[in-house]
Amino acid sequence: MKRTVEILGIPFYNVSQNAFVDELMDAAVNKKRKFIVTANPEIVMHAQQDLEFNQVIRQADYIVADGIGVVKAAKSIGKPLKGRVTGYDTMLGLLEKANEMKLRVYFIGAKPNVIEKLVEHVNVKYSNIQIVGARDGYFAAFESEAIAEDILRSQADFVFLALGFPRQEKWISAYLEKFEKGVFMGVGGSFDVLSGCTKRAPSFWVKFNLEWLYRILSQPSRWKRALAIPRFMLAMKKQRRQG
Rank of each mutant, 00 (worst) to 15 (best):
E120G: 00
R135K: 14
N99T: 11
G164W: 03
I115G: 01
V37Q: 01
L94H: 02
Q219S: 14
S203K: 09
F204Y: 12
V21L: 04
A110F: 02
N128D: 15
G109M: 04
A148P: 05
Q239I: 07
A73H: 05
I68G: 08
L163S: 12
D61Y: 00
L81N: 06
V44C: 04
V119K: 12
I131R: 02
I10L: 05
Q239H: 05
S76K: 15
F35E: 02
L161Q: 03
N40A: 10
V70W: 07
K125Y: 11
I151W: 07
F142V: 15
L163D: 06
I68P: 10
K224A: 10
F160H: 02
N30E: 12
Q239C: 00
A60R: 02
E100M: 14
S221M: 10
F208I: 15
A174K: 15
M1Y: 08
A60P: 03
V37T: 07
Q55K: 15
D157V: 02
L210S: 14
S76R: 15
V122E: 01
W171S: 10
I129S: 09
K111F: 11
P230F: 13
E145V: 12
V56N: 06
R153W: 00
E143T: 11
I57T: 06
Q130S: 12
T38F: 02
L103R: 06
I57Y: 06
V159A: 12
R231G: 05
L152I: 00
S221G: 10
M185Q: 09
I147A: 08
S195V: 06
Q242I: 05
D26N: 13
D66V: 08
P41Q: 10
G188D: 04
V44I: 07
I10V: 13
R84T: 13
L234P: 00
E6C: 07
W212Y: 14
K111G: 00
R135M: 12
E120L: 12
K79I: 08
